[in-house]
Simulated scan of single mutants.
Amino acid sequence: MKVVYRFLFALQLFVGIGAIGGGMMAILNPQGPGGMPADALKNSPFNNYLIPGIILFSVIGLGSIFSSVMIYLRSKFIGYISSVFSWALVIWIIVQCIMLNAVVSLHVIFFIIGLVEAALSAAILFEQRLFPANIILRFYKRMKE
């Protein structure tokens, strides 16, 4: 189980650092962060990258960093915390693909990273026998009898 915690820590830290960098680029240069033209947002409710940059920086970036710190500190709620930010990443990528009306390799990579983080978070919840794992395990035990 130690490997699960370490791998989840590394993934959350990697995502957090990248999202803070990407979010900061969008906040500092909302018209074209990293060479991305504002025209790409024509199918979205935004006319520049400021609001998406703030969301990327705060929710995905700081949230993932917070989650990695909680893993390091061995919080008893880490299964829940990391799950929330893992699914936030998955939802972020889906919404981003819809708004940009495009799917590129980075979208696929970070979508998979989000799903892996969610699976590792679920493994922690099962190990700790926390909700919903406790209900699933109880139901499974009754079905076996």
Score class of each variant (00 low, 15 high):
46 F>P: 02
11 L>Y: 14
43 N>P: 11
34 G>I: 06
98 I>C: 01
82 S>I: 09
126 F>A: 05
136 I>S: 05
142 R>L: 11
78 I>P: 07
37 P>Y: 12
140 Y>C: 02
45 P>G: 14
53 G>T: 05
46 F>K: 08
53 G>H: 07
22 G>L: 11
87 W>G: 04
115 L>G: 11
68 S>L: 01
21 G>R: 14
102 A>T: 13
57 F>C: 03
119 A>H: 03
79 G>R: 03
99 M>R: 01
126 F>H: 08
58 S>D: 02
92 W>G: 04
127 E>H: 14
109 I>G: 07
46 F>I: 08
75 S>V: 06
39 D>C: 00
132 P>D: 11
139 F>S: 10
27 I>A: 03
79 G>K: 08
23 G>A: 11
55 I>S: 09
72 Y>D: 01
55 I>Q: 05
63 G>H: 04
14 F>A: 10
75 S>H: 07
12 Q>K: 15
72 Y>Q: 05
100 L>P: 05
109 I>P: 01
64 S>Y: 09
86 S>T: 07
17 I>K: 10
58 S>G: 06
135 I>G: 05
12 Q>N: 13
42 K>Q: 10
136 I>A: 12
91 I>H: 04
129 R>F: 09
123 A>P: 00
41 L>Y: 02
47 N>I: 13
110 F>M: 14
60 I>S: 09
